[in-house]
Structure formats: C-alpha cells, structure tokens
Design a protein around this nucleic acid. Sequence first.
RNA 1: UGUCCCAUAGUAUAAUGGUAGUACGACAGAUUUUGGUUCUGUUUGUCGAGGUUCGAAUCCUCGUGGGACAACCA
Length: 559
Amino acid sequence: MTEVKNQPEERSLNFIEEIVEEDLKSGKHESVLTRFPPEPNGYLHIGHAKSISLNFGLALKYGGKTNLRFDDTNPVTEETEYVDGIKEDIKWLGFTWANEFYASDYFEELYEFAVTLIKEKLAYVDDSSSEEIAAMKGTPTEPGKDSPFRTRSIEENLQLFADMRAGKYKDGEKVVRAKVDMASPNMQLRDPIIYRIKHAHHHRTGDKWCIYPMYDFAHGQSDAIEHITHSICTLEFVTHRPLYDWFIEKLKIFPSKQYEFARMNLTYTVMSKRRLLQLVNDKHVSGWDDPRMPTITALRRRGYTPESIRTFNEKIGVQKRDNIIDVSLLEFCIREHLNRIALRRLVVFDPLKVILTNYPEGFEMVRSENNPEDENTDSREIPFSRELYIEREDFMENPPKKFFRLAPGQKVRLKSAYIIQCDEIIKEADGSIKEIHCSYLPESKSGADTSGLKVQGTLHWVSVPHAITAEVRLYDRLFRVEDPMSEEGDFKDYVNPDSLQTISAAYAEPSLRNAKFDERYQFLRKGYFCLDKDSSEEKLIFNRTVTLKDTWAKEKKKG
RNA sequence: UGUCCCAUAGUAUAAUGGUAGUACGACAGAUUUUGGUUCUGUUUGUCGAGGUUCGAAUCCUCGUGGGACAACCA
C-alpha cells in the first residue's frame, strides 16, 4: 500500500517533449534526430549546456540521435581552436554525438540551392551597398522598398553569381538576396541576404570559397540535408522561422521544423560569447577558462562535475519565458554532488599557533574518516603533535554569545583528536596574538572518549612540523550585481573586484601531498576544492569550487 | 506604436476545465566530533478587467507589463 513511496518522481514533460511525443505518436516521425549547432567562434558556456542537455537529452529519452554540427559560415570569426574546445566540453558533459558535421561540408549544395532559387526567380544579385540595402529595408513600422536590381533576368543573375564565386568582385560589392517580400511586417522576410563575398581563409575549406552563405540560408538547409526532425534553438530565432520554412518549401527539401526555447540567464554573470570575450580581452579574467567564468571549460577547471551541471539543467526546465536563474541553484547542485564524493581534508588558511603545554614531545597518528556520507570510503591517518595551527578566526579573546569556538577558558574539540582548553594568550609586543597555550584532555581522544564532556565546537587543525603548504584560490561571483546587463552604463563596471582572493601559503595535512586532478576535496569547514591545472610537483594549487553553507557567517552579519 | 513571443511565491518550475504543488532561497527548530550533512516546520503566488462554464491558472476578448526583430553575425 505504501510502495509508491520509493518510485522516482514522475517529471512532467516540457513543451518540446510534448511535441516530440506527439510527432512520434502520430507517425510524423519514426525517430528523433536533433542537432547541436555551435558556431566555433568562442567557448561554450553554461547556457549552451542547457541546449546540449535538451538536444542530446531528447534523443536519449526517445531513442534517437544527435549530430554535432559546427555552424561555420563566417570564416573571419571562426577558428579550429574553438572547434576542439567545444568538442571537449560536450564530451566532458557526458554526451556523444552520432556525427560530426560542418555547415561548410554543405557549401557546394548550398551554392546549388541558391542557383535553384535564382532559376525560380526567387533570388537575385544585388549591387547595392550595405548602407543602401539597410536604407531600403524600411523599419519595423514602415515597409521597405524594392531594390533596383530586384528584377534582373535569370541569366544575368546566374552569370553574376558565378562571377561572385569566381572571385571577380571585392568584398561587399555584391550580395545575393532571396526575393521574398519587402513589405512584410516581419523584417526577416524583407529580401534577406543569403550570400555575401568574403575573401577570407576558412578554417576548413581554406581558400576554396570567397562567397559564404548567411546563417538563414545555411542552417535550415543543413538541418534538411541531415534530416533533422526537431531543430531546437533560442527565442531570438522565432522571427526567422517563417524564413526557415520558406527556404525548405521553395527548395522542396526535407521538412525539418524549428522550435524555440528561452535561453538561460544566471544571476551575477553575463551569458553571451561576445561579452565573455570582452572580459577575456580586457583582462578582467585570465582567459576563457578562468574559474570565475560561466564557460564549461572554466566550470570544469573550478571543480564542477558534469553530473551537477546535468542535474542543474533538469531542475531549471525548458520554457519560453525570459528567465534569470538564481546562481544559488547551481551552487546547490554542485554542493549536493560534492558532499557525496569529496574526500575530507584539514587545511588551515590563516594560521594561529596553538601549543599544547601538557602534550609530550613527538607525535601520534589520529584516524579520520574520508567521507562521513559514504560508508565505502575508508579513513586516513593524520599526524597530531604538541604544536598545531588552527584558523585565526576560530579564536577570540573576547567572544560574543554563541561563539562556539576557542576562547579563554573555553573548550573545543579538534576534529578527530582531542578536546583542548585555552589557558593563556601569548602576545607580541604590538599587542597582537602570537600564539595560545592550551591543555588537552588525554581521555577525550576521538573514538575513545571517556571524558564525558560535551563541547559545542569542533575545529580543523594541522600539525606544525608535518604541515605542507599549498596555494589556495578563493573565487567569488564575477559581478557585484545580480543582473549586470540591466544596470546603467557598461556591464564591465560591475565586475566584482574581490572575485579572486589568493592565499599563497595555506597549511594542509600531509596526505594532500598526493592530491590528484580527478579527485574532489572538502577542506573541512572551508568548502570544496580541487587541484588546479597550474599545480606542479613543487607547488600545489587548489581552486575553491564552492563554499560550504555558512550559517555562522549569516549569524555574524545579523550582529 | 508593425509583426511575433511571453506572463503562477524572491527565483525557477508543475497543475493540459475539477483541492494551486515542487525545488532553490529565506526564516525557525531538532540532530551533529564539519556552525557542513540530515530531518521537521513556517513564509510568500495565478498581471488586471470583462466573458464562456456547475466550475477558469488553464478557453475567449480587451487592457497592462516584459521581451525579440531593422548585422554582408549566428
């Protein structure tokens, strides 16, 4: 009777899944073929991850396939470096494409499509300048005017188009436009340009072409060539859909259908390749993979797991309304995963020396669990000695109420070791605290505590003679404001100046000497960390992926 | 003031004419050798006005608000 309880929660379908299920049920399509179509002019960001999850997820869910297709129709901005980066990111996210295609694979077919249109009197070569074309285009509220070249003969158009391809004209001298409707209320339909001249080296076709198709003339046709059943893109292409359908109809090719969803926005960051590139170029960050960036490569470097990003994508859903997702949801997803898999380690960032006056010379090894959430992980030994470092902020000479840490006369437990009590504060000449002298309770050892004492606080620590040092990089949100784009002025004015704090020498327990790149760590009471790619044999560098939730910090703020 | 898209707690997301639910956040408490985790509880919502209907978040109309579109970018 109560068995329903453990059933996985049934998730309702998003609007695209509904369309797919309907198409499958009605027999419109026998299977699903989607595509992920990045332009190789920058790195993928978390917003793209939503599209990747959607496209690949749809195929996975309904037993279909997904092609990876690089939309490489603009040679001046596109580079092979980006192609490689994008492929790596998709693989890392855990998805596998059926075919790796390029819009440039179809240049010859696309050229023929344009010839077909010309022959049907549905396209023409226009000698007008860019400015003239813009002027004749009209405005959203006023119709456009026909170009004087609109009525050229088929033969002349064919010849001119062939000459364009042959390289007889300079950039911008001529374009090919589709003949749709200069009076259409939809601006996209006012004789859109479908081919332009660019004497530029293409990352794949080299110098074979000097004319390149525009997005609208490449995307839908590429979908059709591949027999994509559901071509999913973002909302800004809604107004392009009539054009998408128009080309498919006029060319009588496979009727792929375009569906649009709202792109994702995240608080405290920006989400466009153009703006991210600005941050890189203006050196606000060290590069596309600076861990503060919302790019996939940066998230990976920062320690995010692909699982957490996929979970995040499931949670945010798919819809058509503008949205800005609270970054705390992303943080929740990564904490939830890391809590399950991260190995616990003790690391002191800002050391305060503690001398245990009644502890003998030498040291002992104490045992500590690697992950209390996972019974399968074992434990490790940590050296404990008479001289220790604790976190400076874990001691206060005059503590406020509810300060459960170390203070004169106050007792705390040292994690996996003993209860200690503060007896004396040793100060420097300037009055600052040099070290504190404590006594430990031998009968309070972890696992064999017969002291009967209950203490409120437990601190992390390291043994001074055994500690190793490491650099620790603490990251915070890239922007000071939730939505930099909605603020006055340049979005770059709102970059958070404290988004990176570097601790050049933190003191870590010796087991971290063997830290591995594929392992995740929780530095107790500090946050989740991973080894940074800048690390070397001589120098360990850790990135903070995300902090732990800190209710004490909130308490302090309240005053 | 053209065409198109959208509107449910602070943020997201369900309810597909029949009890407005879930997650994150926030707040409070319990547990805790991490002020973590876990658990419990509280809080806040259908943009507005009409209409259809026994019944409307859902369908219709008109408003209001937000967004997209005028690159030889994608």
